[in-house]
Simulated scan of single mutants.
Amino acid sequence: MPSLSHPAHVTPAPTPRRDFAGLWVPIATPFTGDVVDHAALRALVQRLRGTGIAGFVACGSTGEAAALDLHEQDAVLDTVMEAAAGLPVVMGLSGHHLGHALERVRHLASRPLAGWLVSAPHYIRPSQAGLRLWFEAIADASACPVIVYDIPYRTGATLELATLRALAAHQRIQAVKDCGGDAAKTQALIADGTLQVLAGEDGNIFSTLALGGVGAIAASAHWQPERLVECMLAIGQGDLMRAQRLWQALAPMMAALFAEPNPAPLKALLAQQGWMEATLRAPMTQASPALAQRLRELTSSHKSELAPALNRP
Rank of each mutant, 00 (worst) to 15 (best):
P88A: 14
A129P: 01
A120Q: 01
S127N: 08
G95A: 13
S110I: 00
A84Q: 10
S110C: 02
W116I: 11
A83E: 14
H97R: 12
A84Y: 10
S94R: 09
S127P: 09
M91W: 08
V105P: 04
A129Y: 00
L93A: 03
G130L: 12
L102S: 07
W116P: 04
R104T: 15
A120L: 06
I124W: 00
L113E: 07
P88C: 11
V105F: 00
R106W: 08
A101C: 00
G92L: 13
I124S: 00
W116M: 09
A101Q: 03
W116T: 04
H97V: 14
G99P: 10
Q128Y: 03
R125H: 11
L93K: 10
A84L: 05
I124V: 03
H107K: 12
V118E: 03
Y123D: 03
V80L: 13
V105Y: 02
L108A: 05
R125Q: 14
V105K: 00
G130I: 14
S127C: 06
M81E: 08
S127M: 07
V90E: 02
L117F: 06
L117A: 01
R104G: 10
R125L: 05
V118Y: 01
V118T: 01
R125C: 07
R125I: 07
G99E: 08
V105T: 03
Q128T: 01
S110P: 01
L102H: 11
L108G: 02
V89E: 09
G99C: 01
I124C: 00
M81W: 06
A85E: 14
A114I: 09
P121V: 04
R106F: 08
L87T: 09
G130R: 14
R104N: 12
L93G: 10
A83K: 13
S110V: 05
W116N: 05
L98V: 13
